[in-house]
């Protein structure tokens, strides 16, 4: 299997996986990383699991904002707009 494949150990590959996905490895590191992947199915699986994890997180349903919060803010917006359009309102009221 992939033991000592390329220059990196599996543990090193696992530690660098986010830097690889973020595109922040140096060219040499990236080549060594990819050489290891080419020879090690366990690390290839690990990389796929990481990508899958990210894709799964992206699919979480969005956090619902209560309608009363939304309504309260629209109310607030209207009174803000009113103050904006009548600059003297503070002395008027």
């Amino acid at each position: 299997m992939g033991f000592m494949a390329g220059n990196f150990t599996c543990k090193e590959v696992a530690a660098l996986i986010t830097e690889y996905l973020e595109g922040s490895l140096t060219l040499t590191q990236r080549i060594r990383f990819q050489m290891h992947l080419g020879l090690c199915f366990a690390c290839r699986n690990y990389l796929r699991q990481m990508k899958y994890t990210v894709a799964t997180l992206r699919q979480l349903p969005s956090e619902p904002v209560p309608t009363q919060v939304r309504e309260a803010l629209l109310e607030r917006f209207r009174s803000w707009k009113h103050e904006q359009s009548s600059p003297n309102s503070s002395s008027d009221s």
Binding site: M1, G2, F3, M4, T9, C10, K11, E12, F41, A42, C43, N45, Y46, R48, Q49, Y52
Partner: peptide, 12 residues
Amino acid sequence: GSGHWVDPPQGW
């Protein structure tokens, strides 16, 4: 075996 997987990742 130092640095190698204890339990190699499987395909999901």
